[in-house]
Design a protein around this nucleic acid. Sequence first.
RNA 1: GCUGGGUUCGUAUAACGGUUAGUACCCAAGAUUCUCAAUCUUGUAAUAGGAGUUCGAUUCUCCUACCCAGUACCA
Length: 518
Amino acid sequence: MERRTRVRFAPSPTGPLHMGGVRTALYNYLFAKQRGGDFIIRIEDTDSNRFVPGAEAYIIEALNWCGIIPDEGVDGNGKVVEEASEKHPHAPYRQSQRRGIYRKYADQLVESGNAYYAFDTAEELNEARAACEAKGETFIYNQTTRMSLRNSLSMPESEWRPLLDSRTDWTVRFKMPENTVVAMDDMIRGHVEINTDTLDDKVLWKRADELPTYHLANIVDDHLMEITEVIRGEEWLPSLPLHYLLYQAFGWQDTMPRFAHLPLLLKPVGNGKLSKRDGDKMGFPVFPLNWLNSEGETYHGYREDGYFPEAFVNLLAMLGWNPGTEQEIFSMKELIEAFSIDHVSKSGAKFNPDKAKWYNKEYLRMKSDEELTDAFMPILASKGINEDYDKVKKIVALIKERATFVADFWDIASYLFVAPAEYAEKDANKFWKEENYTLALKVADFILAFDGEFTKESLEGPLEEYIRSNEWPMGKVMNCLRLALVGASSGLGIADIVTIIGKEEFARRIEAIKAKLC
RNA sequence: GCUGGGUUCGUAUAACGGUUAGUACCCAAGAUUCUCAAUCUUGUAAUAGGAGUUCGAUUCUCCUACCCAGUACCA
């Protein structure tokens, strides 16, 4: 029987979601939407010690910004659902609120002989680890050591049974079978095998906080929530055999989800996975949104750095996946159609900030002048400039191809709003020579005397004709004027600039440079 | 250390036994322009190393090297 596709993104609210996490969520989302299935959010907060306030809201807001909208687990107000309803039948979606569910599954495993109660204290285990380390060995809680430790396998029932009630620091551990080959299939990596002798008896449930660990909670919830595919980061591959074994122990192998382990996102230079420190060090964000940590440090986000969510999603999609064609620009809709696990690569992808910027530039040029103007107006206002909307729109149309971010507009075109505060020395030395500027000033007079309509179309032709007919050097003359208008030898065509700033401002700037340089 | 995963230009990747090993970003050169940017054209640059299997290996197998992950009562 064909099951409805249901995938989940299950972050732990221990801090801001970084871009690798967003990518995992994105791939899950694309996979689900392509099959008309459900994308579910589940909050894995089983470690009360690592809980970070605000992290959960951050994660949901980040996904929302990216257009990754969950079908289940989060409601329309961006809140994690706590009460079951038709749309959210598996509520609550926060594992800390599902506490009561897991205990019986842990007990079930003990009863079926797949798990046992362990009474070793943290100190005892630390000592055992230290003792092994001193001998150059690694302590491992498994078949070779478990009988010499304190648990319901090594002690008679009469002894351990009372401890269940009298102590509150025991755990339930998985009883890893001996010398068994676990054969697994991964949608990305193919067939993988491992011998259970290399694995340990993982803690599944902790009496101390009456909460499961990741492994138990994950398997139980994926089963209960009828998850069909688990698409997660590569760091989970080593625990896949345990998860397989848990499905077997519960007798759920018929509905066990398929697994796909995604390659990691690596730092741009050097080795290792992308970490939150890399970004600010290298001048690119690692997070989707700004994040203020408890020490008062702010980590940069793509949103605040001026990236469009579409560009961010697009670049993320291409980090570890390719469409098999040469298309590089994809809308979310196109991604949903084109995405395929078959084209996800096996190896980690080094993030390339240059390519990220290129993506933003491409998206910026696809935006309408109106949308860009709307974004630019507040920036202008912050510079103390209240310019007419239509005029700003005209300017935006002229400069949008030169920018990567909307925030670049000001740097590129501030001279269209305010006179240059200074003149670039290098350019001035190069162009503002007497033989040039005497001619340039004549051209300025020509422009001031021009009585036709002041538009680029009407002005440009006659202006160039005037210079040519006098056989003056076009480049030198124009750059002298540009220096006066822009403050440097870069920027738009003279006719464009003059048209935008108008005749009066043009006159003022000519006077200003005359006073300064003549 | 052990276990698992990975390895094509600097980067992201294509080529799922037969190609002059393709594309994009970056970089460089040229064209264009009144400058800059944009644009266009061109260029530099890769199958980690070694054995096999095969008529033929980037592609399959093994070994080595290197990288990554896991090795918690963290996820």
